[in-house]
Lab assay of single mutants.
Amino acid sequence: AVSDRLIGRKSVVMEAISPQNSGLVKVDGETWRATSGTVLDVGEEVSVKAIEGVKLVVEKLE
Score class of each variant (00 low, 15 high):
Val58Cys: 03
Gly23Pro: 00
Ala1Asn: 13
Ile17Trp: 02
Met14Glu: 07
Ala1Thr: 12
Val12Asp: 04
Leu56Pro: 02
Val57Arg: 09
Glu15Gly: 05
Gln20Leu: 11
Val54Gly: 15
Val42Thr: 05
Asp4Val: 10
Val25Cys: 06
Glu45Trp: 15
Glu44Asn: 05
Ile51Cys: 06
Thr38Val: 11
Glu52Phe: 10
Lys55Arg: 13
Gly23Met: 02
Ala16Arg: 14
Asp4Gln: 13
Asp28Met: 09
Leu61Phe: 10
Leu6Met: 07
Gly53His: 04
Met14Leu: 14
Arg9Ile: 08
Glu45His: 10
Asp41Arg: 13
Val12Trp: 08
Leu61Ile: 13
Val42Asn: 03
Val48Trp: 01
Pro19Thr: 04
Leu40Ser: 00
Ala1Asp: 12
Ala34Ile: 00
Glu59Phe: 07
Val25Ile: 08
Lys26Leu: 15
Thr35Val: 14
Val57Lys: 05
Pro19Gly: 06
Glu15Lys: 12
Val25His: 00
Leu40Pro: 00
Thr31Leu: 15
Val13Cys: 06
Val2Gly: 13
Val25Gly: 00
Ser47Leu: 15
Gly23Gln: 01
Arg9Val: 08
Val39Ile: 13
Lys49Ala: 08
Glu30Asn: 08
Ser3Val: 11
Ile7Thr: 06
Glu62His: 12
Arg5Tyr: 10
Val58Pro: 01
Ser47His: 12
Thr31Tyr: 14
Met14Trp: 08
Thr35Asp: 07
Gly53Arg: 01
Ser18Val: 06
Ser22Tyr: 10
Gly37Asp: 15
Val12Gln: 06
Val57Ile: 11
Ser11Gly: 15
Val12Asn: 04
Ala1Ser: 13
Arg33Glu: 14
Asp28Cys: 15
Lys60His: 06
Lys10Ile: 15
Ile7Cys: 10
Val54Trp: 14
Ser47Ile: 15
Glu15Asn: 06
Ser47Trp: 15
Val48Tyr: 00
Ser11Trp: 04
Ile17Tyr: 02
Ala1Leu: 12
Thr31Cys: 14
Pro19Met: 05
Val54Ala: 14
Gly43Asp: 05
Leu6Pro: 01
Leu61Met: 10
Val48Ala: 01
Lys10Gly: 07
Thr38Ala: 11
Val13Met: 02
Gly29Leu: 05
Glu52Pro: 01
Thr31Glu: 09
Ser22Ile: 12
Gly37Thr: 14
Val46His: 00
Leu24Val: 10
Val57Tyr: 10
Val48Asp: 01
Ala1Tyr: 12
Val2Arg: 09
Val13Glu: 02
Arg33His: 11
Ser18Asp: 07
Thr31Asn: 08
Leu61Gly: 07
Gly29Pro: 01
Asp41Gln: 14
Leu6Gly: 02
Asp41Val: 12
Val27Asn: 02
Ser47Tyr: 15
Leu61Cys: 11
Leu56Met: 05
Lys49Thr: 13
Met14Phe: 09
Ile51Lys: 05
Gln20Ile: 09
Ser47Arg: 15
Val58Gln: 00
Ile17Val: 06
Ala50Gly: 11
Val58Arg: 00
Gly43Ile: 01
Glu15Arg: 08
Leu56Ser: 03
Arg33Ile: 15
Ala34Glu: 02
Ser11Ile: 07
Glu45Ala: 09
Ala16Val: 08
Trp32Ala: 01
Leu56Thr: 02
Pro19Lys: 04
Lys26Val: 13
Val46Gln: 03
Lys60Met: 05
Arg5Ile: 08
Met14Ala: 07
Glu30Asp: 08
Ser11Cys: 15
Gln20Met: 12
Ser18Gly: 09
Leu61Ala: 09
Lys49Gly: 03
Ile17Asn: 01
Val2Ala: 13
Val27Ala: 04
Gly43Pro: 01
Ile7Glu: 03
Trp32His: 08
Ser18Ala: 06
Ile7Trp: 04
Leu56Ile: 05
Arg9Met: 15
Ser18Thr: 13
Arg5Asp: 10
Glu62Val: 13
Asn21Glu: 10
Ile17Ser: 02
Thr35Pro: 02
Leu56Tyr: 02
Val57Ala: 05
Ala34His: 01
Arg5Cys: 14
Val46Asp: 02
Val2Glu: 10
Glu15Pro: 00
Thr35Gly: 05
Val48Ile: 14
Asp41Phe: 13
Ala34Asp: 03
Thr31Pro: 05
Pro19Ala: 06
Val58Tyr: 00
Arg9Trp: 09
Asp41His: 13
Leu40Trp: 06
Asn21Val: 14
Ser11Ala: 15
Val27Phe: 06
Ala16Glu: 07
Gly23Leu: 03
Asn21Ser: 13
Gly43Phe: 04
Ser22Asp: 15
Asn21Met: 12
Ile7Ser: 04
Leu24Arg: 08
Pro19Glu: 05
Gly37Gln: 13
Val25Leu: 03
Leu40Asp: 01
Glu59Trp: 06
Pro19Asp: 04
Glu44Gly: 02
Ala16Ser: 09
Asp4His: 15
Leu24Pro: 01
Ala50Glu: 06
Glu52His: 11
Ser3Trp: 13
Trp32Cys: 04
Gly8Asn: 06
Met14Ile: 15
Leu6Ile: 06
Gly43Glu: 03
Ser3Gln: 10
Asp4Ser: 12
Arg33Met: 14
Thr31Trp: 10
Lys26Asp: 09
Ile51Gly: 02
Val25Lys: 00
Lys26His: 09
Glu44Leu: 08
Asp41Tyr: 13
Val48Thr: 02
Lys49Phe: 07
Ile17Phe: 02
Val58Phe: 00
Val57Phe: 08
Glu59Val: 11
Lys60Asp: 02
Val58Asn: 00
Ser3Pro: 14
Val27Glu: 00
Met14Arg: 03
Ser18Met: 06
Asn21His: 14
Leu56Ala: 03
Glu45Tyr: 13
Ser47Asn: 09
Arg33Lys: 11
Val25Tyr: 00
Lys60Cys: 05
Glu44Arg: 03
Glu62Ala: 11
Ser11His: 03
Ala34Tyr: 01
Lys49His: 07
Lys10Met: 11
Val42Arg: 06
Glu44Ile: 08
Glu44Phe: 06
Ser22Gly: 10
Gly43Trp: 04
Lys10Trp: 11
Glu44Ala: 09
Ala50Asp: 07
Val57Cys: 07
Asp41Asn: 13
Thr38Trp: 10
Gly23Val: 01
Ala16His: 08
Gly37Cys: 14
Ser3Tyr: 13
Ala16Thr: 09
Thr38Tyr: 11
Ile51Thr: 05
Leu24Phe: 10
Val39Trp: 14
Gly23Phe: 03
Thr35Leu: 07
Asn21Arg: 15
Ser22Arg: 02
Thr35Ile: 14
Leu40Asn: 02
Gly53Cys: 04
Ile51Ala: 05
Lys60Gln: 06
Glu30Val: 12
Lys49Asn: 06
Val48Gln: 01
Val27Met: 09
Arg9Asn: 08
Lys26Phe: 13
Asp4Cys: 15
Asp28Leu: 09
Gly43Arg: 02
Ser3Lys: 11
Val25Asp: 01
Thr31Gln: 07
Glu59Gly: 08
